[in-house]
Design a protein around this nucleic acid. Sequence first.
RNA 1: GCCCGGGUGGCGGAAUGGCAGACGCAACGGACUUAAAAUCCGUUUCCCGAUGGGAGUGUGGGUUCGAGUCCCACCCCGGGUACCA
Length: 818
Amino acid sequence: MEYDFASIESEWQGYWEENGTFNASDSSGKPKFYCLVEFPYPSGDGLHVGHPRSYTALDILARKRRMDGYNVLYPMGFDSFGLPTENYAIKTGEKPAVVTKRNIERFKKQLKALGFSFDWSREISTTDPEYYKWTQWIFLKLHEKGLAYKAKMPINWCVSCKIGLANEEVVDGVCERCGGEVEKRNIEQWMLKITAYADRLIDDLESVDFPQRVKTQQINWIGRSEGAEVLFSIDGADDTITVFTTRPDTLFGATYMVLSPEHELVEKIATPEARAEVAEYQKKARLKSDIERSDAAKEKTGVFTGAYAVNPVNGEKIPIWVADYVLAGYGTGAIMAVPAHDTRDFEFARKFALPIRCINKPKREDAESAGISIDDVLAGTACWTGDGELINSSNDSGLDINGLSVPEAKRATTEWLEANKLGKAAVNFKLRDWVFSRQRYWGEPIPMVNCPDCGWVPLPEEDLPLLLPEVEKYEPTSTGESPLAAMTDWVATTCPKCGAPARRETDTMPNWAGSSWYFLRYIDPHNDKAFADPDKLKHWMSVDWYNGGMEHTTLHLLYSRFWNKFLFDCGLVPTSEPYGKRTSHGMVLGEGGEKMSKSRGNVINPDDVVREHGADVFRLYEMFIGPFEQAAAWDTKGISGMDRFIRKVWRLYTERGVDNAAELSREQARVLHSTIKKVSEDIETLDLNTAISQMMVFVNEFSKADSFPRSAAEPFLKILAPFAPHICEELWRKIGNEPPVSLAEWPKFDAELAESDEVEILVQIKGKPVARIKMSPNASREEMEQTALADPAVAAELAGNSPRKVICVPGRLVNIVP
RNA sequence: GCCCGGGUGGCGGAAUGGCAGACGCAACGGACUUAAAAUCCGUUUCCCGAUGGGAGUGUGGGUUCGAGUCCCACCCCGGGUACCA
């Protein structure tokens, strides 16, 4: 009988849907398992073959967990706010809401055709007012707790289009659409204080099971560094400059200071003679693009302000410079420069002939292994940034760190600074607060009102959701405001506090907003009293296993951990960390290993593959393509192998038929049990490619036999079912079982049967194979040694000499050292 | 520059420190067929004086009875980050 995948697949998809086979229960005696994949942005291009890589892998896991007896939540939804839809609307005039609806329908159809075991009754979409009501509600909570605030922040401004651009719309420093110049403009924007959680976002990584590279990337991104803030007074003025340094131990080596061009004191301290040159330098720095400014390879520039600061540890006057290698956005925007022990300061000092004073002598072996001469370091002609022994570092006011190591000197100096009120220990982060405003239409409206008397006033909770009004034009305004600003009817409102005429916030939220808490909404998606019921949250949280792309490590994954921690602190969610375990899938590349893109013409459409080979073949192929966490190139010819495998399975069950009476041979039992074992284990580590290999071995073994015993046929369908669910449901029914196999009990394996009774042991003499002997895998070392030494070939080789050493590896080999 | 990955046949890739190349693709030879498709069987790391022998997991060293696997140095490819004081 022909294998008609098209009708079989649609039949079983209908069956699962009608029976709610995969709907999760909120009240179940079974242990829960919350399995999550990153929900897609429903683009107009439809599903990409990359999406199903993640969905299939966790679908296999979810399906296995159900068969293991868990109550599984495996939901799906749509992250549907975003720029592409808005840009499409600008181009066609079609409403974003309409476009979004159409795109979601298409995605859903494609996802359903792949037979994923999602609980569709919990589907959500971030653009649904019933959803974004709660996104707005969480924003109000953040505002209430002081974690949302307004601040002037730069946006990318296209001079010719006269609109603000998202970072991804700035390509190589110019506007993506018109190629025009892009500059920075400071405007008032909502900010979220993620930095308040910086420490916990690092520390709590210890409590979760994330890949080490994900943890490392997040830690580096947050960039915690410990050091001190030091106060420098300005010679002949009342002002003081605060610097942040991780090396307070090098204070005696500070020979100049540098302010960033944007530092507020620059104009004030510049002497009349230097003022013009300083102003010129500031102007140039402002006009430089981010790329120009952040190019570490370029030569350093700067100008002298004419002013001097006083080094707090020794009263020395040191010149104050302005240079753009000091960033306004990090620390205090000012540094003390220690050229002898900082490579950037060293480079700058050499260029501008500033003094370099060594105060840290490296150990001989350290200097040698770094290829640096101690004499050069002492003479100030080489830079030493490592550990060493402090020299030339004492004053008359009770600070003497000479002879100390770097860590000791750091501590001593910081204590001295604190005692003398000249500084204090301080921690700095690379992580910035989150700019939460977008000057765009297609996002959640920010539920805030600006009153001339009361300032920014939050909308009352009962006014949520604040609906996104329909506008005529979707382009941002030429003033840099969002299209909503042009809607005077909508913008004009009254102050919720005093009732006076007031204006609504016209910026919208970024598309990271909705995805920061969607995993909570799946738990109770239709609740109109709360974002989710506390008892249900308690039942399901945290997410047991969350799979997604590495590209989301530093934004989405961090943002959603932040929001969850915030809600935890408010007592609204039960766990401090949202995700217990995180895994990442590799990208699916085009044929030839390049990224898939329309311009390269190498895009594979999943619909075509499903039409030609069916969903089961598609799923299996995507899992077989290579190691899950690594990138893999699509290979159209490779699919035919999977097609062959599936049809071979079909023939095995339908042509020969299952034999109820037949007994398994010893070898068949071994293959069956080792296959159950391997597949069971490999699913847990997402080594799905090797699981499939082993199932191929099984099919090869049983295809060559005369009969197919039921005792092998049934368990095999169960373990193949998570991978290729449609064909397995069909065959399961065909061999006379009650559907669905999707909820059948996962088979157990017999570890003893999974091993051979007899293995071939390799006998080597000094690593060279000389004989092969058959024996039990459980044979003792003594037995193995005796049998090996008794072998004629071995005896001949040894020629009567007794071996010096014999190494026996049970079940593997004997190596004789003569 | 720094931080992660990765480098194994013609290709995708397997290998708790224990016979490298499982499984699949592709290619070649054969069977079945009027023929093709489908299916089945076989061969396929490289080299040589070829029923045998030698070499072989990016390169060079090392540890070990034994290294694709562990250690040191380096080269190449991919990703992240980029003057963070």
